[in-house]
Amino acid sequence: MLESNKHSIFQTINAASPIDKVGVEERVARFQTRSIKDDAKAQGLKMVLSMIDLTTLEGKDTPGKVKQMCFKAHHLHDLHPNLPQVAAVCVYPSMVAIAKQALEGTSVKIASVATAFPSGQSNLEIKLADVKLAVDSGADEIDMVISRGKFLSGEYNFVFDEIAMIKEACGVARLKVILETGELCTLDNVRKASDIAMYAGADFIKTSTGKIQPAATMQVTYTMLLAIKDYFEATGKMIGMKPAGGISTSKLALHNLVMVNEILGPNWLHNEWFRFGASSLANDVLMQILKLESGSYQSPNYFTLD
């Protein structure tokens, strides 16, 4: 990329006005007062299911566990017909080949974390090799982490270039850029990191790895959605959003959808543009759907764990 070009990009990024944290909190609180009932709720819950990236990112992951999760991805609850399948599964690069095999013939996508996830503390060669391993094994989407240490020490250029190079290494795979907002300390930083990621070539921006608390708070997601909106207005290019970590209840998921709809509009209400990174959300949504249809509160005992 031409240096002059990048210079103007950074001018745009720096021009973003400071975030009014109290204002954000008030606005976010208002999304949580919406009452969504009956048909709208049922429709919303099914949409949530279709947007989930079913995730397992543990040191203890085994091929068996990944295969089982992949099965769940397209058999959420076989006792109930007409349920959507989830959008994707999200695994470590070493598990991509296994997931690929397990999901053959389905439309569930495979996302893989890469770039020395979750800390990102490695050099560029190793990060690129990590991405290559995932892409070569068949990943459709790459979830990279930014170098938070570099970002916090003000080396925005470094962060920008790194994202751009990873994007190139992804080829046709879509790139989600994880900001790890829990380590960025302020909403201003979240906004800046979002802008850098989008201008450097991200297809999606994602809140968190799920390894750090706080993760996907509504305040952070709200700030990132506004960044996406501004970017869309400036460039005409749609960027996806993925809150990850901490969204484990249907209610919170629905509030997130309300927020997306009111900030970005209905074009983003599709798993092409919005995802939930979650491991336990799916079962809660399933329980809510069955509760709506049967009238009885459900028990987790009757739903598969993975």
Binding site: Y297, Q298, S299
Partner: peptide, 8 residues
């Protein structure tokens, strides 16, 4: 009745 039908 809600107690009675609660699955948990």
């Amino acid at each position: 009745p809600i107690m009675a039908s609660h699955m948990d």
